[in-house]
Design a protein around this nucleic acid. Structure first.
Length: 391
RNA sequence: GGAGGGGUGCCGGAGUGGUUAAUCGGAACAGUCUGUAAAACUGUCGCCCUGACGGGCUACACAGGUUCGAACCCUGUCCCCUCCA
């Protein structure tokens, strides 16, 4: 069960309210990612104070460590991590993509070789639901098969069909109705597959619908197009969740295409690597230009970090690899995202979203698309050389 | 005073006759990060020309020498370190 109330639509952008067992979540909403039951570097109170009402945790990671039963014994994930806001859990479907070298997918489910110790574990749709129910998440996701954008159409089709079957199996075993179960549309970069996916899933009655399999190496333009087309096919009265998307410009673009819920590891991860969001784009605090900048990173920012510290100090903390650096950067970026999403919501309610969007995008310089994609490939290559040993 | 060891690019440190503008770290400079295997990764890193391929020049304390060819061998000079007196 989840109660979604649509308050306003301007253009395609929607503002609404999602009622969960842990409070009402205003949409559009962005969930910071806390895969292992922690939004890295911050306390739950800090996350809450930054205006975040829902976070994302991950079934695969929590299953491996500390284990689902442990969390159950500790009173559920909310209690375990002392977070009283809403929790959305990913099923582990993303790890099919991100840990593609460590898993095998069959119709039955996914077998992973643990990235921690190499041991084997099988995740089925039924187990994914069971685990997420045990964690006590407010919104849980079906197990899906998320694969890269450059896979063949046949592969994408097969993954999509399999995801549909898995969705049905998840629905069948889903018992705890105070938790909402969302289905995930797949179909890669092919509009006609996306259409089939939505048709197949909306025939079943899910509490909400997610768009998965995007932001997996394709161009932004493609992400936006597929999002727009898919969202337009989804039932208007159900929440729509675009999985894994959340650079500032992406949020603005995709709210404008009808998305209500986002989650993204980007703001927090990028923060830990020295990148600060500003209205004019992302800046790298490690750049030499900040060495003696007395002003904060963003002079009119009201976050704790910018209220107290010069860019020069942050620059120094990052160069020294002081742990405080990662916290201060995370605070700033989440404050930035929080302000952004709240402005978006306000301007939707005021019928001013279109002009807000135009102005924001005009001022915000996105990263170079070509370097982005080539660097991503290189990163994947570098990482695949550090895989655990075959047994 | 005696005995021994050593001086390599911004720093540390490999190399000990040719395939070496010189492995590897670090620093520096820039870029990337999207349902988190991430406090990670990538590129550049002597000077000049080129968008790049590539080309030219100067280089392994200094000076001289041996050799077709030297960071690497020889001689001298300067400097540093360790031990003994």
């Amino acid at each position: 069960m989840s109660n979604f109330r649509l308050l306003k639509i301007t253009g395609k952008a929607r503002a609404g309210e999602l009622t969960t067992a842990h409070g009402i979540v205003s949409t559009p909403v962005l969930c910071p990612v806390g895969s292992q039951g922690s939004v890295k570097t911050l306390t739950p109170q800090e996350v809450k104070d930054l205006g975040m009402n829902m976070i994302l945790a991950n079934t695969y990671h929590l299953y491996l460590r500390p284990g689902i039963t442990t969390i159950e014994k500790m009173g559920g994930l909310h209690k375990f991590m002392d977070w009283d806001g809403a929790i959305l859990t990913d099923s582990g479907g993303y790890q099919v993509f991100s840990l593609s070298k460590l898993r095998k997918v069959t119709d039955e489910g996914v077998t992973f070789r643990s990235h921690i110790d190499g041991s084997q574990h099988t995740l089925t749709p039924e187990l994914a639901v069971q685990y997420q129910e045990a964690l006590g998440a407010d919104i849980i996701m079906v197990l899906d098969e998320c694969i890269g954008h450059d896979e063949s159409r046949d592969r994408l089709f097969a993954a999509m069909v399999r995801t549909h079957h898995w969705a049905e199996r998840c629905l069948k075993v889903h018992k705890k109705t105070e938790q909402a179960l969302f289905a995930i549309a797949q179909g890669g970069i092919y509009p006609e597959l996306r259409k089939r996916s939505v048709e197949a899933l909306t025939k079943l009655n899910f509490d909400g619908y997610a768009i998965g399999g995007l932001s997996v190496g394709e161009q932004k333009r493609v992400t936006f197009d597929i999002t727009e087309e898919t969202a337009s096919l989804l039932p208007p009265d159900k929440p729509r969740y675009l999985m894994g998307v959340g650079a500032p410009e992406d949020i603005v673009e995709c709210v404008g295409r009808g998305i209500d819920i986002f989650d993204c590891a980007l703001p927090t991860r990028v923060a830990r690597n020295g990148a600060f969001y500003t209205k004019t784009g992302r800046v790298d605090i490690l750049n030499a230009g900040f060495r003696e900048q007395k002003e904060p990173v963003e002079s009119d920012c009201t976050c704790y970090t910018c209220q107290h510290f010069s860019a020069a100090y942050l620059h120094h903390l990052f160069r020294s690899k002081e742990l405080l650096a990662y916290r201060l950067a995370t605070i700033h970026n989440l404050a930035f995202m929080s302000n952004l999403i709240h402005s978006i919501r306000q301007t939707i309610l005021n019928d001013k979203f279109e002009s807000f969007k135009r102005e924001f995008l005009a001022g915000y310089k996105p990263t170079n698309e070509e370097t982005r994609l080539t660097q991503k490939k290189k990163w994947l290559e570098a990482r695949s050389e550090t895989l655990p040993e075959e047994d």
